[in-house]
Design a protein around this nucleic acid. Structure first.
Lengths: 200, 200
DNA sequence: TGACCGATTGACTGGTCAGTCAACCGGGAC
DNA sequence: GTCCCGGTTGACTGACCAGTCAATCGGTCA
């Protein structure tokens, strides 16, 4: 009685398998049977735990994105200069990629950057991230740490877009992805956005 | 005999219809019959001019992307400070969106940001754009106009990513898209990337 | 006029999957 | 032992759609 059978186990197994398969083949060209095979589980079991293939992806996205939202909010509420807050945010996203590149690939390629299909479903949550970053920028402007002539919403999009593009670059092998590249990337993005490319 | 029947006409009609339908429903959920209906043309004619649904999208992408590559190269070879070159590039992309938002939506959502499916096919051309932008940055560094401690490839990704994210913001109604917003956007991006958010 | 040929039509086919469902399994309760 | 029930299985079905193809149209040329 100590350990109940494996009720959550199989569910997790399916989710983890889905990450691998979605990352490898993309959502549209993975059949539900691929997920089941990869998980070592019968086809029908996927539908026992999830009501559709789409719900599997939704679950993966929500799981991870809520962590991102929490991280941004925590950074924002910390007592740090705005630049350090942005550093924390960039660091969290890059670290997420380093920690589980397949999951981040799925989230970016299939959700965040697929705002037609799934993005539409999650637009609200995605937008919340942009808004929170914009708030950090706005606060920086109020305190005088940031210049005030750039709309925070624009700045937020530029900042997030730059980071996501770096991840895309890694995902598709467009830029080198060694450990030292990850380490430098955070500082590069923040330096670019906060200091600019031109010398000071 | 002056005007040959309408050989190119119908082909163009199909391409234009495809832009509208792809923009509205996304590539995966448009059937070939949707394109034919929208173009006011028989189903089979689509296959007379294109060997597959995918080829229609490829054609749309290639048509537009080659213009972008040309614009970047032209900007690069002009006798301008690197910042002005980046301004030209940003301006061209934003102007492309202003001029035909549906086409740009299709290109970004279905190709550029869908590097799994079609992106894979066009990765080479997409990369060429990043590389050309990186070259502009590198030249700026050599001339001393840009600081040298940021990898040009990183800077290029940040710059392009920022712009594409702005377009995404417009596409999905995340940020305001009035005429004045378009006008300001170019300067905002370039100011952010070149000068940085922190005051000088 | 009639032969020719590319443009155009749309019914049809073959294959693919998402999702369903009836049956089966195994462990706990009594 | 028997009942119960959630977990598990995988064959099956119904719908959907990309791509094919044989037939038709209409303009040109001799």
């Amino acid at each position: 009685m100590a350990s109940k059978a494996p009720p959550i186990d199989k569910r997790r197994q399916i989710l983890d398998a889905a990450i691998r398969v979605f990352a490898r083949q993309g959502f549209h060209s993975t059949r539900v049977s691929d997920i089941a095979d990869e998980a070592g589980v019968a086809y029908g079991l996927v539908y026992h735990y999830f009501k559709s293939k789409e719900e599997v992806l939704n679950e993966l996205f929500t799981e991870r994105w809520s962590l991102l939202l929490a991280a941004i909010d925590e950074a924002d509420s910390a007592d740090l200069p705005p630049r350090a807050k942005l550093e924390t945010v960039a660091g969290f996203i890059i670290e997420s990629y380093r920690h589980d590149p397949e999951l981040m690939k799925v989230i970016i390629v299939e959700v965040t950057r697929a705002a037609n299909s799934f993005g539409q479903t999650h637009l609200r949550e995605i937008r919340r991230a942009y808004d929170s970053i914009a708030r950090i920028v706005a606060e920086g402007q109020e305190s005088g740490a940031f210049r005030s002539d750039i709309d925070p919403a624009f700045a937020s999009m530029s900042f997030y877009g730059a980071i996501e593009q770096l991840l895309s670059g890694w995902i598709f092998d467009l830029i080198p992805a060694s450990d030292s590249d990850f380490a430098k990337a955070k500082d590069f993005v923040v330096a670019t956005i906060c200091d600019g490319l031109e010398p000071r």
